[in-house]
Simulated assay, not measured.
Amino acid sequence: MNSARISELLKTRPKTSLYWGLYLASSDQRTTPDLGIAVAKKLAKRAVDRNRLKRMIREIVRSAQATSLNSDVVVKLKKPIGRETRGRLRKKEKQILRTQIVGLI
């Protein structure tokens, strides 16, 4: 997905939860749906956590696209993670983030 398409999607009204913003737009029928992920360095300090979140999001969205979701998607982290754990993403918080994103899709 190119940056122009991502900017276009970010102008639409998102579905939101506490931590996530999910931007959806219908894709062309002749192309496969695209995915954009935005996890800012300010919100997830450690590269390990940013990469883990991106993998988790890819897994969830791809499974949703395989079953029912047939649109372009941009997922954006809105709030910082790991406030209680010195900026590190722990298992409990990871489960909370996963359930929130599944609830949006």
Score class of each variant (00 low, 15 high):
K94G: 06
N70D: 15
T12S: 15
V48A: 11
V74C: 13
G82M: 07
R86K: 14
R58K: 15
L22H: 05
T12V: 12
M1T: 13
E84N: 07
K92H: 07
L9C: 09
R90C: 10
A64E: 09
R86V: 02
P14H: 10
T85Q: 05
R13K: 15
E59M: 04
R13P: 05
N51D: 08
G87P: 03
E84H: 11
Q95L: 14
E93W: 00
S3R: 12
I60R: 04
K54M: 08
L22M: 12
A40L: 05
T67G: 07
K78Q: 11
S63Q: 15
G103A: 05
L9H: 05
I81A: 01
K92V: 07
P14K: 08
L35K: 04
R86C: 06
Q65R: 14
K76V: 05
R13T: 13
G82K: 03
K11D: 07
L97S: 04
T99W: 13
L43A: 07
V75W: 01
S71W: 06
P14F: 06
A47G: 12
S7F: 02
K78E: 08
E8S: 15
V48F: 07
S71T: 09
S3E: 02
I96V: 15
P14T: 05
I37M: 14
E59L: 13
K41Y: 07
L89A: 02
Y23I: 03
N2K: 02
S27D: 13
S7V: 04
K15S: 08
N51E: 08
V74T: 15
S68D: 15
L104I: 04
R83F: 11
L97V: 04
P14S: 07
R5A: 15
L9Q: 03
R30K: 09
Q65M: 11
K42M: 10
K79W: 14
L104T: 04
A38M: 10
